[in-house]
Amino acid sequence: MNTVTAIDGRHASAQRLRERVFQGATFAAALLVLLLLGGVALSLLIGSWPAFAHFKLSFLTREIWNPVTDQYGALAPVYGTLVTSFLALLLAIPVSFGIAIFLTELAPVWLKRPVGVAIELLAAVPSIIYGIWGLFVLAPVLQRHVQPWLIDHLGPLPLIGPLFHGPPFGIGVLTASFVLAIMVIPFISAVMRDVFETVPDVLKESGYGLGATTWEVIWQVVVPYARTGIIGGIMLGLGRALGETMAVTFVIGNAHRIGSSLLAPGTTISASIANEFAEAVGDLYTSALIALGALLFLITFSVIAAARLMLLRLGHRALSSV
């Protein structure tokens, strides 16, 4: 009798030990996720400190970027990042919206899955492939056919005209925005599709019951119901576009200046880092590039956090692959 209790006691304490070890391991791993984000923020802060201490606020307001005289300002890359992302969204939103509508409301059942998977595969293609494709295929096409047309027809217009002045380089801000747009389309449309699918059928059916056309149901029932999710999805796409590196690096032209024309070469934060970091000599140069990274982190973190909060409030979790 005594031996049985003894064995049981040993067994139970061994079990308890394993339980504590396993539970501790899962908790530690979960905490590590928190630490990662903290560590990223901290290391960027430490790394960028010399640059910020040296240039103070002028780092944010100057366009100059000269490794020879060790003068750095973030204005050109920040401007390039914001403009390319904004243009990319402008192009991507209508297309993504159309795809999401097609997938949820229009496509026959047998077509839904293959088309949906094909669009998701577009999201799985690595960004460097978009870059090499953009440089060798898209840029020449834009240079020969699209940009001359833009220069001839939009260039003379007042207000927006100056955006389309200058020679058609092929590579530049506009091409980068175009490639970015193609990249974010699958992300935005995947979230939009998921959000559209959360709209209760009863709501749509009451719309149809009143004699509404498909479009009227989409525009007056589905879209208002899914508004928060749509905005969240768009901001998630914006987060992608802001931080995208390789696709942009190939086609933006890497010129540290703010051109008035969208056809001129420019640069973005991530493209500057990708191009210059491994070859950067001197502490201040390296630190200035890390400072650019810190700015990018700040911008994308706010956008992504806002997007995630919106999607979270919706009680909806976007695709795991996104």
Binding site: L37, G47, S270, G293, T300, A307, R308, L312
Partner: peptide
């Protein structure tokens, strides 16, 4: 309660620019 925070941070990391992760590991 901490799980809500971890889920949120994980979602942010999921969409964080990969070049920033590169900078982090460079420093680390």
């Amino acid at each position: 309660r901490i799980s809500t925070v971890i889920r949120f941070v994980n979602d942010v990391l999921l969409s964080a620019p990969s070049i920033i992760i590169g900078l982090f590991v460079y420093e680390l």
